[in-house]
Design a protein around this nucleic acid. Structure first.
Lengths: 207, 207
DNA sequence: TTGCAAAACGACACCAGTGTCGATATAATG
DNA sequence: CATTATATCGACACTGGTGTCGTTTTGCAA
């Protein structure tokens, strides 16, 4: 119900499709979802869907970008109301409450798929690298700042610590994509990794 | 050129196909290789190929099993000629020479694909869990033994350490699947992880 | 109301990949 | 050498997914 409609309505429709698509990707994974799945979930026709997204890749990338801006916003928010670099780091790792829990981005498995299966496609690869660099820089800057302030020890290179954080997070995401949470022991592993970070950064208390 | 042949020849043919398939999977990844690719690489017809493997999944699983038995054999070999649990652990992690290097199983990215994209298939999932458990048990037993012998501290639970090893290895494999080696800094990260293990197990020297 | 631009529709042509099956070729056996 | 079991072949039918495009519908403006 809406030909030649306001830009508002177009935005809304697009958002609706993306929301439905998100659920589909979560359910079926990237490779196994089809445009037909999305059509049905979003209650839109084939032609209608292609009006907004020219193919599955395009659609998924829209979701990726959306997630990115959301995240950036959340980080922005945290920046003010945090009392230490350590607290900020914990918040970056585990979200709002800043303590290890069992929640993970439900879209994460599909994201892994997207980048792994696309590793031979130049475009996709470049995009993946860009995202890796972004994450890396984020953690690295944070650690550097903490080191400069004296809160963190500079025994280890900030770059390397940042890298190991990403490796760990990716590893957890990967294992969690394939195994039930109880088997991965997400919470315990996260807690242990935090111990490791405390050691590497020479932070005593967790507050 | 070989109908009604010796069992030897059949084994050989099968092995040849698997070898060719391995290369194809390495080049294209699991999802993007087709039976046609394998046919061409192995120099065998469609019908011929299907005589040995009933589909792509079957073929890939044969490669997985092969890798598993190879690995078990290599581990077996090490067991005798190793002077400490620590050395054994390093050998398990980094292969023969037991020191961090930049080599990784070239089939690893395809393996990740196989299990991630198949995470909703019951059969595949169960298989993945089985493999995880196997790897977990292997590391756990080793660490337990080291702890019993007094070589390792039992400050941390062997199970948890084993898990974090797998998480780390998986994380590295994942990042390496998408990023060039220089970007992941495989070697440096491995070295740092070893430092961490030394800390967790309270091992002083690396020999 | 009426006209229209364009949003939404869904049938269609197309393609790539799969697994099968009858035909063919040939290594072993007597 | 003739026979035969069967390994190998490749054409084929089928399937599922894709992106397009002419048609229909509908919200808005005149």
């Amino acid at each position: 119900m809406s030909p030649r409609v306001s830009k508002e309505h177009l935005k809304q429709r697009r958002a609706d499709i993306m929301k439905a698509a998100r659920n589909v990707f979560i359910e079926h994974g990237y490779e196994h979802t089809t445009m037909k799945h999305v059509m049905e979930a979003a209650g839109v026709s084939r032609g209608g869907l292609y009006q907004y997204f020219s193919n599955k890749e395009d659609l998924f990338e829209a979701l990726l970008e959306e997630g990115l801006t959301d995240e950036a916003g959340a980080t922005e928010d945290s920046l003010g109301k945090v009392e230490s670099y350590w607290a900020l780091l914990m918040q970056l790792l585990f979200g709002e409450d800043g303590s290890p829990d069992t929640e993970m981005d439900p879209l994460a498995p599909s994201k892994l798929e997207f980048f792994i299966t696309g590793r031979n496609d130049e475009r996709r690869r470049a995009y993946g690298e860009k995202r890796y660099e972004m994450g890396l820089r984020m953690y690295e800057e944070l650690i550097k700042a903490g080191q400069r302030s004296g809160e963190f020890s500079d025994r280890y290179e900030s770059n390397l610590i940042a890298r190991s954080i990403i490796t760990f997070v990716d590893g957890l995401a990967l294992d969690h994509a394939m195994l039930p949470e109880e088997k991965v022991k997400l919470k315990e592993q996260s807690a242990m990794f935090v111990e490791y970070l405390k050691m590497a950064l020479d932070v005593s208390s967790s507050r």
